[in-house]
Design a protein around this nucleic acid. Sequence first.
DNA 1: ATGACCTAACTTTTAGGA
Length: 264
Amino acid sequence: MKLKISSWNVNGIRARIEEIPKWLKEYDPDILCLNETKCLNEDFPSNIFEELGYNLYLNGQKSFNGVAIFSKYELTDIDFHLYPGSDDEQARFIEAKLNIPDNPTIIINCIYLPNGNPYPSEKFDYKLEWMEQLFNRAKQNMSTELPYIILGDFNVIPTESDVYDHTNWLDDALFRIETKKKYRQLINLGLYDAFLLEKKTMVEYTHWDYQGGAWDKNHGVRIDHILLSPAACYTFNNMRTHTNVRGSEKPSDHVPVSAEFILA
DNA sequence: ATGACCTAACTTTTAGGA
């Protein structure tokens, strides 16, 4: 069987109430991880997505941040805390487990990693601390040797190739050396970037600013990532960036990214 | 023309995003 899992920073679930169902019907992912839902769970327009056949797992927050997972399969072991005893009030993390008969349990981490601008600032320090905690979480999950997938808006530009002109971004929190170092530490646990597994000849950006005609000029950045453990790579089939979504009528500034797996 | 964004909020301006 095929499993399609996606990630999308929607920039406001209520602002995207037309666009998201439209895309879900077109691509029909089994699981969608959402970032920046920007609303409390009680205000979440759940019905629309439940009617499309999804179970909803919401970690919402008023106005800012907010993550969610839509899944056609029931998920277990839901955890909204990046680390035990966390008193972080920012809703940026969901861990869930997917149990499909005749397959190993898949661990999913839906993340919305802090932006961290400006540099330097307390926000930048918070970003690095969050990345440190994500590293610890990932290290623990990697030790299970189960298929493990981290996906979301990482707010990390991994290399010069992942931005239209890196010289504009040298002091940006998304491209600072400290950020890239922490990201490399995470990758070096043995994770694979699904985009790189595809060995595409051209970079595919996942975010274009609303300002300055960035979309028209293709002034984008690749910051939404899908990272796979070795066991997840074993069933990996392909990865795609849904670039065309950025040109829709009322787009988010990010587009969805998806990975497909062939399971037993 | 030499500017030109979007979301959500106790909204008429501000914070946050990237």
